[in-house]
Design a protein around this nucleic acid. Structure first.
Length: 424
RNA sequence: GGAGGGUUGGCAGAAUGGUAAUGCACUAGUCUUGAAAACUAGCGGGCGCAAGCCCUUGGAGGUUCGAGCCCUCCACCCUCCGCCA
């Protein structure tokens, strides 16, 4: 959500931003509705001032005057009721338009229509060269008893899977590694509070983070009206919903762990093999709330990005970083980096995480504020990045495979795997 | 599932249906070598150069000239009972 005042004063900028994001949005239409809103509002305000004025006289008046005053107020009441009815209609339209106003992409965000236009900004590691025909993770993991897709489908349906034996152990090892990684960071700046967060959530957090009302069909919904979230971001960001934070506690840095549920409604035929695209997985997520300052947002954005790169490097996974083009940005995002890890079986880099910042787009919706030194209330800024999604597991398997089908365990994970070097 | 109680500013906490006290915290100023204390002002949001006006008591409706207060529905919190683990 953007400030309507800001939109009014920067209509052109907002329109340009929408265009750059390839989002169909007409700022003029909103401003027209807003004009109507303001006009009716003003009319009501004047009438209400009159009403307040007379109402204050009534208790002090004698009974004859009182009768007269009440009689005088009756037509005013009817007029106001009519105006309020009218305003209600305008407000419905106004609200509807307001939640569709996209945040403005940063200057450094490249033009483009889709993820094909994302720009590579960094590459790390060596793509493995195999002197044998590499296998995909399905074959490797199934052979090693790490993954059971047949029973996954039998029990959970399409895209269902079980991680078994060393598959489960390796996944646990990754989680422990991530947790320790951030514990070490926490020792330095006393931040990075670990949290285990719910994924069965009320509607408000999704509206607040910008996943609803647009993404209705991407989410699972329960018969009680809650939704299952596709990322811990939704719950973590909403943790401080409707609260006022102490400025001295900022930035808040949180490391959250949760289930992630994705309907993948638009991706029925896509990535149907293996566990690249699944309906349910676990994920570590970094979320930061900071002071309302662009430079601070940018600095922390780089920080959470570098955290994820450090992790990926520690795991020895070759990756590249792309800056998302404007057409590939979400409604609220100002700028986004994707980190993509090399997937040998498909000969491409595949996304494993995504780092974005929002300025106060989310916090305005979620009503997360802090009191600044000047005594004023301000909406905080928010950012988030994946720390570890479900994908690195299969990336490790494919990149570290040996000719005999065994898997070299990344050194940093060995302490969590009884010191073993290989899965065979 | 049943019964009852509750939700007011950053926090605590008042308000016979007559238009949101007060305290604490916070910010600025005065005083002070500095701090504390004391004093003064500000301290939810919007419009306005200003005077000032409007909105704001969990949310949505209703009754009324006027609703924090009365009525209806909803959300959440607490206590007890039942059920399950």
């Amino acid at each position: 959500m953007l400030d309507i005042k800001f939109i009014r004063e920067n209509a052109e900028l907002v329109q340009e931003g929408a265009k750059k994001k390839r989002i169909d949005f007409d700022v003029k239409k909103l401003l027209l509705v807003d004009d109507k809103r303001k006009a009716i509002n003003q009319d009501i305000e004047v009438k209400r001032a009159k009403q307040n004025e007379v109402s204050q006289k009534i208790p002090k008046a004698d009974s004859i005057q009182r009768e007269a005053l009440i009689k005088e107020m009756q037509p005013l009441k009817e007029e106001m009721q009519k105006l309020e009815e009218e305003l209600k209609g305008v407000m419905v339209e106004w609200q509807k338009l307001m939640v569709t106003v996209p945040n403005i992409p940063d200057m450094s965000v490249p033009e483009g229509d889709s993820d094909k236009d994302n720009k590579e900004v960094k590459m790390w590691g060596k793509i493995p060269k195999f002197d044998f025909t590499p296998k995909d993770h399905v074959e490797l993991m199934t052979n090693l008893g790490m993954l059971d897709l047949d029973r996954g489908a039998k029990v959970a349906g399409f895209r269902g899977y079980f991680l078994t034996g060393d598959g489960a152990r390796l996944q646990f090892a990754l989680w422990q590694f991530i947790n320790d990684f951030f514990q070490k960071k926490a020792k330095k700046d006393n931040k990075w509070i670990p949290m285990i967060v719910p994924s069965l959530l009320r509607r408000e957090p999704f509206i607040g983070t910008g996943y609803l009302p647009q993404g209705e069909e991407d989410l699972y919904k329960t018969q009680d009206g809650q939704y299952l979230s596709g990322t811990a971001e939704v719950a973590m960001m909403s943790y401080f919903m409707d609260e006022v934070l102490d400025k001295k506690d900022l930035p808040k840095k949180m490391l959250g762990f949760s289930n992630a549920y994705r309907r993948e409604a638009g991706a029925h035929g896509k990535d149907t093999k293996g566990i690249l695209r699944v309906h349910e997985f676990f994920k570590f997520e970094q979320v930061i709330l900071c002071e309302a300052n662009h430079e601070t947002s940018v600095k922390l954005h780089e920080e959470i990005q570098s955290n994820t790169e450090e992790i990926t490097q520690a795991l020895g996974l070759p990756y590249r970083v792309v800056i998302n083009c404007a057409g590939d940005l979400g409604l609220g995002q100002v700028k986004k980096y994707d980190i993509e890890v090399w997937l040998p079986s498909e000969n491409v880099y595949k996304e494993t995480g995504s780092a974005s910042y929002f300025h106060d787009f989310q916090t305005r919706r979620l009503n997360i504020r802090y009191r600044d030194e000047d005594g004023k209330m301000k909406f905080a800024h928010s950012l988030n990045n994946t720390a570890l999604s479900g994908r690195p597991l299969m990336m490790i398997v494919e990149n570290n495979q040996q000719v005999d089908g065994s898997i070299i365990i990344p050194e940093v994970l060995r302490p969590y795997m009884e010191g073993r070097e290989k899965i065979k």
